[in-house]
């Protein structure tokens, strides 16, 4: 999933693909959809656990771009724009569908307070750290912080893209990220012993 990152439609092949799309060739839409489909699908799983709902939403997203293709600029197919449009759609749709949702489905979409992690550890006695301590720590972050960590370190987007997607100011993203990483650092005593093991397993 790491390759094909942040495709900007500038290279020759992409220019041709773009022209075919503009000319109304449905296969070109398929190829454009192929580029970011996995990233979009993954992001959507953080809002809904219903694969049908997710596939419908992504399908609709691309078909809307298709229907507006005459007035579309190339930025429409940049990853962060697609993620933003999908996020908007998912939140809108899940509000519409609220009655049918099972509890615990929405992962990122609730607006809750960013509580200090320490108090959450105390609050949540059930959350023991599993294989890796940092995994446990990330799961204790607020929804907003988790989404931030996810967009930064899973989708590998920069602060500007993240600000755009989450509808925040760029400075607030930078601040929140800084604070979140600091929070994590404070309670994360990285497993030095594990590192030594890891290094050995890599060397030999």
């Amino acid at each position: 999933m790491e390759s094909g990152e942040n495709i900007s439609i500038v290279s020759d092949a992409n220019v041709r693909l773009w022209q075919r799309f503009k000319a109304g060739e449905s296969a070109a839409l398929g190829q454009l959809a192929q580029v970011h489909y996995r990233w979009l699908y993954n992001y959507a799983t953080k809002f809904s656990s219903d694969p049908d709902f997710i596939r419908d939403a992504i399908q609709e997203l691309y078909l809307e771009l298709w229907e507006r293709r005459d007035n579309l600029s190339e930025t429409a197919f940049v990853k962060s724009y697609l993620l933003k449009a999908l996020r908007h759609k998912l939140i809108k749709e899940s509000i519409k569908l609220k009655r049918f949702q099972e509890p615990g489905q929405a992962i990122f979409d609730s607006a809750c307070e960013d509580m200090p992690i320490e108090s959450q550890i105390i609050a949540d006695e059930n959350s023991h750290f599993q294989t890796s301590r940092i995994k446990g720590i990330i799961k204790l972050l607020s929804k907003r912080q988790q989404e931030l960590i996810y967009l930064r370190f899973y989708q590998n987007l920069d602060n500007e893209d993240i600000a755009n997607i989450m509808g925040l100011g760029r400075q607030s993203v930078a601040n929140l990220l800084h604070r979140t990483l600091k929070d994590i650092r404070q309670i994360w005593t990285p497993a030095e012993f594990m590192w030594a093991l890891l290094l050995f397993s890599l060397l030999f």
């Binding site: 449905s26 839409l29 398929g30 691309y62 078909l63």
Partner: peptide
């Protein structure tokens, strides 16, 4: 899914 998107796009031309 990609095929389905392309198919529906073709239908909605």
């Amino acid at each position: 899914e990609i095929q389905e998107i392309a198919r529906l796009a073709e239908l909605r031309k």
